[in-house]
């Protein structure tokens, strides 16, 4: 008996080709190396590296994590060595990764985004850039880029101007109209959108009368935010033609399929890795089985199929 051909799960995000439709969420996966003992990195579409900034950042005071019902509240505060030390000490280690390596850039001014993107994208080890304009844990400055249409546009344009590599822009759910921001970012030259970053949140210790996080407020991730994220993808997929990387609480293939049917071409997995590092494998296997059982030959065939006004290109 001839073996049935496997459904095609490869995805293109601009020039970037992913063998599998799974990106590990920035800040959740280190540089990938931390997880190498537990999963074959070749089974991942790619790793989005921890966000890097122009200057070194100490990060927020502890505690930085609080577990909440079906979720995780974090306020890391972009701890990173700054772009100079990062280029000198870290980036060379990302060579020869058997999956895509996507640098993540965070900033506090339009010039920061241009400067860090240009320097990072110039390195061969980096296959693409994700612009983190949506970090909720660095005071108000960081997230204003994703929440203010003119700043979102300026940051995207600035980064677009300095690299031809795939530019993914990561949007915040903490806005009134995410589709409007998505449209502006698309027009400013983004190749793809990551939807969503964490949802702003807080937890208070009622015995001590103080917020539990050192930073007081933080970003919520995990299954608790999945419905918020699916709706955000649904709305963005009606507004733009560029591909979407849907993320927020994905732990199984069926979770991932919700995002894909809403209009995502690929998915991000962050907090799900904290449950079990084999989650990305299970997601890929499950999607493949799902497609095969329904007689589809490629993942692209079902992107946006639950979304009647899906505007993207399959």
């Amino acid at each position: 008996m001839a073996e049935a051909t496997q459904p095609d799960l490869a995805v293109a995000l601009g020039r970037l080709r992913l063998s599998w439709p799974t990106l590990m969420g920035s800040g959740c996966y280190g540089s990938g190396e931390e997880y190498a003992p537990f999963i074959d990195l070749a089974a991942l579409g790619g790793v989005v590296l921890k966000s890097v900034t122009r200057h070194p950042r100490l990060g927020n005071a502890a505690p930085r994590l609080v577990s909440t019902p079906s979720g995780l509240l974090n306020a890391i505060g972009l701890q990173n060595p700054g772009i100079d030390a990062y280029l000198e000490n870290d980036v060379a280690n990302f060579a020869d990764r058997p999956c895509a390596v996507i640098g993540s850039v965070a900033g506090f001014s339009v010039d920061d985004y241009a400067y860090v993107t240009e320097r990072l994208a110039a390195r061969d080890e980096i296959d693409a850039i994700e612009l983190n304009i949506s970090c909720p844990n660095v005071g108000t400055e960081g997230e204003t880029f994703a929440c203010d249409p003119s700043l979102a546009e300026a940051a995207t344009r600035a980064a677009r101007g300095v690299t031809d590599k795939t530019l993914i822009v990561k949007l915040s759910p903490n806005v009134t109209d995410i589709a409007a921001i998505a449209r502006i970012v698309e027009a400013a030259g983004a190749d793809a959108l990551a939807v969503i970053n964490t949802v702003r949140g807080m937890s208070i210790d009622v015995d001590r009368w103080t917020p539990r996080l050192g930073n007081a407020n933080g970003g919520l991730s995990g299954p608790a935010i999945r419905p918020v994220a699916v709706l955000a993808v649904w709305e963005v997929a009606r507004a733009v033609k560029i591909p979407i990387v849907g993320q927020g609480g994905i732990e199984t293939a069926r979770d991932a399929l919700e995002f894909i049917l809403a209009g995502a071409s690929a998915v991000g997995i962050g907090t799900g890795n904290f449950t079990d590092p084999r989650v990305p494998l299970n997601v890929v296997d499950g999607i493949r089985d799902y497609l095969a059982a329904r007689g589809h030959s490629a993942l692209s065939e079902i992107v946006g199929k639950a979304n009647p006004r899906f505007a993207g290109v399959r």
Binding site: G27, C28, Y29, G30, E34, Y35, P37, F38, K50, G59, A62, P63, R64, L65, V66, S67, L72, N74, I76, Q79, T271, N273, F274, P277
Partner: peptide, 17 residues
């Protein structure tokens, strides 16, 4: 013994000065 998320050094959530 503090709250961990990844437990493998990937998320920078479990820090001490």
């Amino acid at each position: 013994e503090e709250t961990f998320a990844c437990g493998v050094g990937a998320c920078w959530g479990c820090v001490v000065p």
